[in-house]
Computed example of a mutant assay.
Amino acid sequence: MQPPVPSTFRTRLLDLNFIPRFTSSQRSSQLNQKNTTMTLRWGILGPGRISYKFAHDLVHVERAQRASQSVTAIASNSNIANATSLAQKLGIDATCFGTYDALIESDSCDVVYVGTPNNTHFDLACKVLHAGKHLLMEKPFALTVEETDKILELAAEKKLFVMEAMWTKFNPVFTKCRELLESGVIGSVTRVRSDLSYLFPRDDPGMVRIYDPALGGGVLLDIGIYALTWPLALFGAPVSSTSKCVKADTGVDIADSVLLEYPGFVAYATCSGLTNQVGTNTGTLTNPAIFIEGTLGYVSVNQADQPTKLVATTWEGTIIEEFTYEPKGFGMSLEADHVLACVEASKIESPVHTWDDTKLMSRMLAGTLEENGILF
Results as ranks from 00 to 15, higher is better:
4 P>G: 02
8 T>E: 12
22 F>D: 07
22 F>I: 09
34 K>M: 13
42 W>C: 07
48 G>A: 12
50 I>M: 11
51 S>D: 08
55 A>G: 05
58 L>C: 14
59 V>F: 01
60 H>W: 09
68 S>C: 09
70 S>F: 04
78 S>P: 00
96 C>G: 07
96 C>L: 05
98 G>P: 11
98 G>S: 15
99 T>L: 08
106 S>P: 03
107 D>Q: 14
109 C>M: 08
111 V>C: 15
123 D>W: 05
133 K>N: 06
138 E>T: 06
142 A>H: 00
145 V>G: 00
150 K>Y: 03
153 E>L: 04
159 K>T: 05
163 M>D: 02
164 E>A: 09
177 C>I: 03
178 R>Y: 04
182 E>T: 12
186 I>M: 04
192 V>H: 00
195 D>M: 13
195 D>V: 14
211 Y>H: 10
212 D>Q: 09
214 A>K: 11
216 G>C: 06
217 G>I: 11
228 L>M: 04
228 L>I: 00
228 L>E: 05
232 L>S: 01
237 A>I: 03
239 V>I: 15
239 V>A: 06
241 S>M: 15
243 S>Y: 07
244 K>E: 14
267 A>E: 05
268 Y>N: 09
283 G>W: 02
287 N>D: 15
289 A>M: 13
294 G>H: 03
298 Y>T: 04
302 N>Q: 02
306 Q>H: 13
312 A>T: 02
312 A>F: 09
316 E>K: 11
319 I>H: 09
322 E>N: 03
327 P>F: 08
327 P>H: 03
341 A>S: 15
345 A>E: 07
346 S>H: 04
347 K>W: 00
351 P>Y: 02
352 V>K: 10
354 T>W: 01
358 T>V: 04
358 T>G: 01
359 K>Y: 00
365 L>F: 01
